[in-house]
Amino acid sequence: MKRVLDIALPLLVAALVVGAWQWSVAHWQVPPYVLPAPSAIVTAFLNNFSSLMTALLATFLITIAGFLGAVAAALVLAVLFSQSRLVERSLYPYAVILQVTPVVAIAPLILIWIGFEHINLALTLLAGLIAFFPVLTSTMLGLKSVDSNLMDLGRLYGASRWQRLWKVQLPSALPYLLSGMKTGGVIALIGEVTAEFAAGSGTASGLAWRITESSNRLEIATTFAALVLLAILGVVLFAVLSLLEWLLLRRWHESAIG
């Protein structure tokens, strides 16, 4: 019953909002370039179906590529930091600087360096840059939070550095890594969209570009359709990462039990 309510209640709210929206637009005759009716958004979506889907695919692929790259890089760096305090002290400040500098501010530079002819690579890099830090910090925290007695046990039984990392540290850091990935996955999408805006229209081919382009033409219904797709993409990314977390932790971690 609780599960049914969990799904039914938000759907009911959505139906009420969309109904009220549709009615209000018709009742007060709001111009479509200010606020299109939900029915107009659906029509715009169907009319631009193939171009919106192409844009969705582009945004999706770039976000995923950036995100996976970020996870790989963050994992390697976090492991490196956990093995050498010297490396951590030398490099960590730069990881922080990279994170606190807003991606919109770095975007023009990256776009110039990589070149507009390789726009997708530049966007991937920007999406990855923003997703990198949360994965790095949470994985670092996980690698440091390992039970020191377990590490002692490893030493007692002659475990090599690699064995300790593989058998004890990495599994123990897994919940932290997955939590960092959930944050990282969602903000990789934000990074991708921001980077597309920074790249400007005419070069990128993703949903953010479709939003810029359609709003310039006052095709606000198409803008809304692209926006809805972006929101859905974000929710799906989050849901998939949450599912992955649940699958990997459900047998043993408190966060996934109950």
């Binding site: 007695n149 377990l150 046990l153 490893g154 007692l156 039984y157 064995q163 058998k167 599994p171 043993w252």
Partner: peptide
Amino acid sequence: EIGFVFQEPTLMPWADALTNARLPLDLK
């Protein structure tokens, strides 16, 4: 050959009893 038992069970929460008890042998 030394065996050590801590005050806490000090088990790996992600592994079952068999895998936990197998740790010293896996490391060897």
